[in-house]
């Protein structure tokens, strides 16, 4: 009888000891995948965001059929995650009331985080405008010279 109690107590002890062991014995598998999220920011050349502009995304394997369509938010932003199994040039078209643009984004193994910024700085715009204006003024001066 005493022996039976001892065995029972031992079994309980083992069970008690084993419980936490079993609780922590599950293996943990942490998978990971690199997901490239692309954020589009669409603005007019005045800096004003293209709020509510429609976005059409084309995958590299089918440039004729839209892969995804969506709408820019108030800040002119649109975010999407391209299918990593389709490396190549993804085309994103942004359009609102006949105004819009297209951007070609390379997606693939060799491409890390990239940023494409279009447009010119104010200084560039002023300088370019002045060059062209001087061209027109020069033409005007040439044709208005005496005897022309």
């Amino acid at each position: 009888m005493v022996r039976l109690r001892l065995v029972t107590a031992l079994v309980w002890l083992l069970v008690m000891l084993a419980l936490p062991l079993t609780a922590y014995a599950h293996g943990v598998i942490v998978d990971y995948m690199v997901d490239t999220t692309i954020k589009i920011v669409a603005r007019y050349d005045t800096g004003e965001p293209m709020a509510g502009a429609q976005v059409v995304v084309y995958a590299p394997d089918d440039p004729a059929v839209p892969w995804l369509t969506g709408v820019c938010d108030e800040e002119g932003c649109f975010t999407f995650t391209p299918d990593a199994s389709k490396p190549g040039i993804w085309v994103v078209q942004v359009r609102k009331a006949g105004h819009g643009g297209m951007v070609h984004i390379p997606v693939g193994e060799s491409v890390a985080a990239t940023t494409g910024v279009g447009g010119f700085s104010v200084l560039q715009i002023v300088l370019m405008s002045m060059c062209v204006i001087w061209g027109f003024v020069g033409t005007a001066l040439y044709f208005s010279r005496r005897g022309a």
């Binding site: 027109f136 003024v137 005007a140």
Partner: peptide
């Protein structure tokens, strides 16, 4: 035909640059 080219040229410059006035 060339008499008005200076006028046209200057107004082309105005047309070119005025699209920046929003």
């Amino acid at each position: 035909p060339r008499a008005d080219i200076p006028k046209a040229s200057l107004l082309t410059a105005a047309f070119f640059v005025v699209s920046w006035i929003h």
